[in-house]
Every structure is written in structure tokens, then in C-alpha cells.
């Protein structure tokens, strides 16, 4: 069976409008041959999870620079569980103080990439995460 291309939903939950980081990641993932859907800005966490489930994505990447990452990621993690979809790998990026990273991981965020992260590292992480979920 031919291997399926990883499918990624990149989303902006909440009110934050800054999209430099998420656009960089989208472009890097596409250059790496992945299929990437972008939500646009101003989505509720619940909307994002519902789209992720409908589109059967392997990874949900969210970008938040407003400081509201704890509240938003908590709602995303809860909705993923409710939808029985917490096998979708959740990835967060943006403007996130180092002290908050352990708390995000405890919520179920698999990895956090902040300012200064290398695109190659993000791509490598997403590829590994998607492959874990995909049938070999």
C-alpha cells in the first residue's frame, strides 16, 4: 500500500492576529511535501477541533501570540477528548513563556515551538508525529 501523505491542520485559535510564525511553518511543511490546511484567523478552539476531525488530519498545529495559550489549549485538548480524537497530535507555537511549556505538555500538547525555533526542527517533528499515527 502506498504511504499516505501526512495531513496537517494549522490553526489560529482565539483572537490573536499575528500570523508570521504560522505562515512560515505552513510554507515549510508544504515544501516538505505535506498536505496543509490553514484555518485563517479568529477561530474558536472548538471550531478548530471539529475541522481537524472532519478533515481527518494527523497533526493539529496551533499558533498563539496573545498570551491566551493556556486557556485555549485546554479547551482544544478537552474537545479532542470529547470527540474521541486525542490521537491527533497537538502542536503549539507562538509567543509562549518558558514557564508555561510544562503546563501545556501536561494538557496534552505534544510539543511547543517558540520564537527562535528552526523550521527544519518543526518539519522533522511533524513528520515523525504523523508517521507514528499513519499506517506504515
Amino acid at each position: 500500500m502506498e504511504k499516505r501523505v501526512p495531513r496537517i491542520l494549522m490553526g489560529k485559535p482565539g483572537l490573536c492576529g499575528h500570523d508570521r510564525g504560522i505562515m512560515l511553518v505552513i510554507m515549510a511543511l508544504r515544501d516538505a511535501g505535506m498536505e496543509v490546511i490553514y484555518s485563517g484567523r479568529h477561530n474558536s478552539p472548538e471550531q478548530l477541533v471539529d475541522v481537524a476531525v472532519q478533515e481527518d488530519v494527523d497533526v493539529l498545529g496551533v499558533s498563539i501570540l496573545s498570551g491566551a495559550h493556556m486557556a485555549l489549549c485546554r479547551r482544544i485538548a478537552e474537545r479532542l477528548k470529547e470527540q474521541d480524537a486525542d490521537d491527533i497530535v497537538l502542536l503549539a507555537g507562538g509567543f509562549i513563556p518558558p514557564d508555561d511549556i510544562p503546563g501545556l505538555k501536561a494538557l496534552g500538547v505534544r510539543e511547543v515551538f517558540t520564537e527562535g525555533a528552526r523550521l527544519d526542527d518543526v518539519v522533522a517533528f511533524v513528520r515523525r508525529a504523523a508517521e507514528e499515527r499513519l499506517p506504515a
Binding site: S44, G67, A68
Partner: peptide, 18 residues
């Protein structure tokens, strides 16, 4: 804050956490 910049009152559901 962002709710103000997007014309939302503090008790709007989209403003929660922001």
C-alpha cells in the same frame, strides 16, 4: 487587549481567556 481591538465586550464568549 484583543477583545477591545476586535470590538468584543469582556463577557463575550470569544473573549474568554483573552
Amino acid at each position: 487587549d484583543l477583545p477591545t481591538q476586535l470590538g468584543l465586550d469582556p463577557d463575550d464568549p470569544m473573549a474568554a481567556g483573552e
